[in-house]
C-alpha cells in the first residue's frame, strides 16, 4: 500500500531513528525506480544495480534528507537519475535496442493499434513506439505519466530547462499520435 504524504513524513522521521523503517520507503518506490531505470537502459541487471544503488545511497543519506512536503519519491528519482548518468558516462552512450523496436513494430502499421493496445491491456507495442522517440521525450513522458511528476520536478530530475521538458513531452505525444494514426 503506497504511503500518503503524512505517512511518508512519519516514516522518514522514524527511519532517521531506526533504519529498519526504510523498508517502508523501499517497498513503496523500489518498483517505480526499477521500472524507470529499466525503461531507460533496457538492461535488467543494470536496472537492478541502479535501483539498489539508489536505495543504498538514500539509506546512507537519510539523515541529511529534510522533509519539504514533497514525496521522497522525487528525491529518489533524482538519485536514480544521477546513477543513470554515471552509468551512461561509463557506457558512453544511451542504450537503444533498435532491433527490438523493429521486431515489435512488425508489419501491423495501418490498423487501429491504439484500440487494440487498450483492448489487449498490454501496451507493449506502444512501448516500442515510445522507445523510438528521442531519449528525453521518452524519459519525460514516462516520468510524467508513470510517476505523475509535474514539469518542474521533471526539469530538476533531468537537469533540463522547463521549456525543454515541456516541449519534449508534447512533441513526444504528438509523434506517438502520428505514428498510431497511420
Amino acid at each position: 500500500m503506497p504511503l500518503n504524504l503524512s505517512q511518508e513524513k512519519d516514516v522518514i522521521a522514524k527511519t532517521k531513528r531506526d533504519r529498519r523503517y526504510f523498508g517502508l520507503i523501499f517497498q513503496s518506490y523500489a518498483k517505480a525506480i526499477y521500472a524507470y531505470a529499466y525503461a531507460l537502459t533496457k538492461d535488467k541487471s543494470v536496472a537492478e544495480d541502479i535501483t539498489a544503488a539508489t536505495f543504498s545511497l538514500a539509506l546512507d543519506k537519510i539523515n541529511d534528507f529534510s522533509w519539504q512536503e514533497v514525496s521522497i519519491k522525487y528525491w529518489l528519482f533524482q538519485i536514480a537519475r544521477n546513477k543513470l548518468k554515471a552509468h551512461w558516462r561509463d557506457k558512453n552512450k544511451l542504450v537503444f535496442n533498435h532491433d527490438l523496436i523493429d521486431q515489435q513494430l512488425g508489419s501491423e502499421a495501418g490498423v487501429d493499434i491504439l484500440n487494440r493496445l487498450i483492448d489487449q491491456e498490454t501496451a507493449d507495442r506502444l512501448d516500442a513506439y515510445i522507445n523510438q522517440l528521442p531519449n528525453l521525450s521518452a524519459e519525460v513522458i514516462r516520468l510524467k505519466i508513470w510517476e505523475e511528476f509535474d514539469f518542474n520536478q521533471i526539469a530538476r530530475i533531468t537537469g533540463k530547462h522547463l521549456s525543454t521538458v515541456k516541449m519534449a513531452y508534447y512533441r513526444g505525444l504528438a509523434k506517438l499520435n502520428d505514428w498510431l494514426s497511420i
Binding site: 526504510f22 523498508g23 523501499f26 523500489a30 518498483k31 526499477y34 521500472a35 524507470y36 529499466y38 525503461a39 535488467k44 536496472a47 537492478e48 535501483t51 539498489a52 536505495f55 543504498s56 539509506l59 491504439l114 484500440n115 493496445l117 487498450i118 491491456e121 498490454t122 501496451a123 507493449d124 506502444l126 512501448d127 515510445i130 513522458i141 514516462r142 505519466i145 508513470w146 505525444l173 506517438l176 499520435n177 498510431l180
Partner: peptide, 30 residues
Amino acid sequence: KIKLVKAIKQSKSRYEPGQDTMAEIKRQVF
C-alpha cells in the same frame, strides 16, 4: 489523448521487477 496516456501508463507494468529481482535488490540494500 486520454487513451494514449492510459496506454502509456499501462506500459509501465512491463518494466516492473519480478519478485526475485525485488528480493535481490532488497538484499543489496539492506
